[in-house]
């Protein structure tokens, strides 16, 4: 992280996304910026409706065409501006450079195609010069990578259990040697013991293949186990960004991050009550004027309701909160 003057693998700058329908406008993503280097894993953490999945979809330009719209900002992948890509380049990029793993393995596989055909399909699209044997060989190779026996290649999805299906989905994502994998809550639908298997497998794959990864999750435990960098998202904004050490060990935190940790029952200490964050996520069609977290914040100051907070920066660690920017200026 010492060299600064090279272009990062993925750079998102001031991204804003809205969903516009006749009735209302949903402000899903409100000016987020982050970078991702090759071989690194970024954890995108937040609750339902924070805009995590919207961000992920926009990286593949897969937002619903009729309603979703990128209103501002740029996404640059390997030096290429995503907005200027034509359809052909986009198709090459999807599944080729960037692959996505969806939350529910039950619905992301086609029930009437064999696993080999489904994995083979994307290999065929991105490598038209491959013949049947080459495709099959590659299918077997990726199945081996995710720990599925080769002889199961001709089985149908329903013959696999939940965890195995998610492995198949991951194999599909790996098939074309992507440079970036976006995993949208890849283990939420799985049991704990299976989740542990899949997570450890994904870690090994990342280490051996050197693929960059964006791990979207609401589980801070998974983040702690897998991510190098963490971005915490709230109401479409990145309220805290930093390395895993910053988020889990540093002293200064955004009050929302503190609340998120306070909400998880601790396995080592038993307390009488948890300390949840009161209230609810703000309505994304009608966001508060100042800090989006102000209405739920226990450290809310008058300025928080009026003015968007600036960024407090300490090395890689960024916190978007008046508490620290104010302290920096006023010297409390």
């Amino acid at each position: 992280m010492s060299e600064v003057n090279h272009t990062p693998f993925l750079e998102v700058k001031d991204l804003r996304i809205i969903y516009k329908t006749d009735l209302e406008t949903v402000y899903a993503v409100n000016g987020i910026s982050f970078k991702l280097e090759k071989g690194q894993t970024l954890g995108l953490v937040g609750e339902t409706g924070a805009g995590k999945t919207t961000t992920a979809l926009s990286l593949l330009r897969l937002l619903p065409e009729r309603t979703g719209k990128v209103v501002d900002g740029t996404i640059t992948i390997e030096g290429q501006d995503l907005a200027t890509m034509d359809d052909e380049a986009l198709r090459q990029m999807r599944g080729g450079q960037i692959a996505m793993i969806f939350q529910d393995p039950m619905t992301s596989l086609n029930p009437v195609m064999t696993v080999a055909d489904q994995i083979g399909e994307s290999i065929m699209i991105h490598n038209p010069e491959f013949n049947k044997e080459q495709i099959l060989a590659r299918v077997k190779e990726v199945l081996n990578l995710v720990g599925i026996a080769e002889n199961r290649a001709s089985d149908y999805p329903h013959q696999f259990s939940g965890g195995m299906k998610q492995r198949v989905v991951i194999a599909m994502a790996l098939a074309c040697n992507p440079h970036l994998i976006i995993a949208d809550e890849p283990t939420t639908a799985l049991d704990v013991t299976i989740q542990a298997q899949v997570i450890s497998m994904m870690r090994n794959l990342r280490d051996t293949l050197g693929t960059a990864m964006i791990m979207i999750t609401h589980d801070l435990g998974i983040v702690a186990q897998t991510c190098d960098n963490v971005a915490i998202m709230y109401a479409g904004e990145l309220i805290e960004v930093g390395t895993a050490e910053d988020i889990f060990c540093a002293e200064k935190h955004h009050p929302y991050t503190v609340g998120l940790f306070g909400s998880i029952p601790n396995l080592n200490v038993k307390v009488d009550r948890l300390s949840p964050i009161p209230g609810l996520m703000p309505d994304p069609t009608n966001l508060p004027e100042g800090c989006p977290f102000a209405p739920r914040c226990n450290k809310c100051m008058p300025i928080c309701e009026k003015q968007k907070p600036g960024v407090y920066q300490d090395g890689e660690h960024q916190i978007r909160c008046h508490l620290f920017t104010g302290a920096a200026k006023g010297g409390q």
Partner: peptide
């Protein structure tokens, strides 16, 4: 031991 612990 399979529970992911939020502690790096």
């Amino acid at each position: 031991s399979a529970i992911p612990v939020p502690d790096i």
